[in-house]
Design a protein around this nucleic acid. Sequence first.
DNA 1: AATCCAGTCAACCGCAACCTA
DNA 2: ATAGGTTGCGGTTGACTGGAT
Length: 354
Amino acid sequence: MGRGRAPCCAKVGLNRGSWTPQEDMRLITYIQKHGHTNWRALPKQAGLLRCGKSCRLRWINYLRPDLKRGNFTADEEETIIRLHGLLGNKWSKIAACLPGRTDNEIKNVWNTHLKKNVAPREKQKAGAAGKNDDGAASGDAGTPATAASSSASSSMTTNNNSGRSDNSGDHCGTSREPDDAIDVSLLQLDDIDVSDMLVDAPPAAQPMLSPCSSSSLTTCVGGVEELIELPVIEIEPEIWSIIDGESAGAPDASRGDATAPCTGTAAVSTSEAEEAANDWWLENLEKELGLWGPAEDTQAHPELLDHIAGFSPLGALELERDPVSTYFQTAPAVDHLPFCYDHEQQQDGSPPSR
DNA sequence: AATCCAGTCAACCGCAACCTA
DNA sequence: ATAGGTTGCGGTTGACTGGAT
């Protein structure tokens, strides 16, 4: 719906603006089946009238299952402030230290309120610095450069490798590090207690996060990014029709890829944890599609159409929002990470803001 | 009740970095 | 070595929302 700049000429004929639940569903389903090895080709293969860039952004910033929704905690905000003081507008690097948060999200938070909060602190600090000439003058984080943490550097490196949650996907220590970029691992982060940065990634949870991918659902085996290990969910062609609000005709050609049984490309779950994750994912997706429970109860119901279109009359049911947002309601990032999420347990008992 | 306005955030763009042939 | 293609990052935009008037 026309957010952002005017369209560039190359994208005439493609959908733009806000994503519909149908598009979200299609993207999620496609990625869980085939991964996202080629964003450029993805929309065509998934039957989406979007450019690859748009798909990637949507996935990274909104659809990734490992995203944490809801307000930033005070700890997270403090971490952002500190890291921004060190790194500046390196949002992806900051996001790397905040599991479940995206660079876009962090950027928005910074620009909307953190920046304002920091400004007074900076003034305050400047005043204090006038008295203590060398104390804590660097950075705008308002954190004195004290308490050298000998493990800060290595911890940060570890975090970058294991707690990756931003959208860059390449902070595996392998590539795409601009020469002039600040290597966090090389910084003398004397003024940062890195443990504070991992506010929402307790050590036990971190191994669950992918060390090398934009999606925590990818795995890094021998440095090679594997396909996403999400459960395989077979979406019947009729469901696509329902999702798309189409008549129950045959799916179009472009849809074929997305709906075809996933034979060779889908990763096979190998552990119980992954199976649990698969169950969770399947369950949620089914719920989102209104397929949870007796199939005939929901399939092809008008309510489903309304529901999927985001105008559900389902009322008090948890499914009252569009399927994808419902998915987020029940899938707080870290907790819902495939291998540990208990979908019955809301992270903090309250829905995300917004 | 209607209008205004500031804040929020999803999505866009351009560019730089990286990859591959 | 390099040209073309792809991906990721950071800045910006503007629709949406809720509170204030």
